[in-house]
Design a protein around this nucleic acid. Structure first.
Lengths: 118, 118
DNA sequence: TCATTGATCAACCGATCTGTTGAATAAAGA
DNA sequence: TCTTTATTCAACAGATCGGTTGATCAATGA
């Protein structure tokens, strides 16, 4: 399973309010499909599909307990997402700070100001 | 503009490899649509649409420089995404650590083990 | 003014997504 | 065995997505 593909699936999975609510719920502990479906006004089958999407993204996993299939949050996968975002966020912020420093230093500030105001 | 809706758009926006590549590129500095389109084998119009998706998500903004429209990364919006993810990731990890502690403490470990192995 | 450059708008197409309903499967319990 | 509970599978409909091409707009520069 490609990592790029997993990133894709994970971000797409979180791009839905029902699935984000499911993730939020699971952060407080494992739950069955029925339990997860309870707050929503959609069919159980629709919720089951949402869980499959989250599972394919690696964001949740499932075990078996008799006829129940408890769903668990995979915190490690969430961390991969923040890691991806932070890579670029921090790069952008650092670049911005470097520009600030340049701006503050004596002269040569013209070009820096040009970029800064954009 | 609803915050929930913005979260949605932002996660969906990052759920596409072209848009993630654009974000990565912009973390190294602003760029025009033409510059952003250069690495891809798709039409300029397609890239323009991707940028509009990112803009609607609040992940990028644009200024004007003659007939060019430089695109800038909005690091603050990226931070909101990590903040959302971390809220639930940290909750899940803390719960897990609490379970570990319970497990390590003398007896009463049966129920904890039960959850832990799932 | 007219051609060029940079980018967007509009209409369209095929694929994927989110929901539905109805049927099927799997395990537990009477 | 028969019923109930928990969940999934299958087929479908409508909406949205990502791409295309062709036309248009806006600013520069000759």
């Amino acid at each position: 399973m490609d990592t790029e593909e997993q990133l894709n699936r994970a971000f797409l999975a979180l791009g839905d309010p029902v699935r984000r609510a499911i993730v939020a719920r699971l952060s407080r502990g494992a739950a069955t499909v029925n339990e997860l479906a309870e707050p929503f006004d959609i069919s159980l089958q629709a919720v089951s599909k949402h869980i499959q999407v989250l599972e394919q993204a690696g964001l949740v996993s499932r075990t078996r307990d008799a006829q129940r299939r408890p769903v668990h949050l995979e915190a490690a996968r969430l961390e991969r997402l923040t890691a991806w975002i932070d890579t670029y966020r921090l790069a952008a912020e650092q670049r911005f700070r470097a520009l600030d420093a340049l701006l503050a230093s004596t002269d040569g500030g013209a070009a820096a100001t040009e970029e800064k105001k954009q």
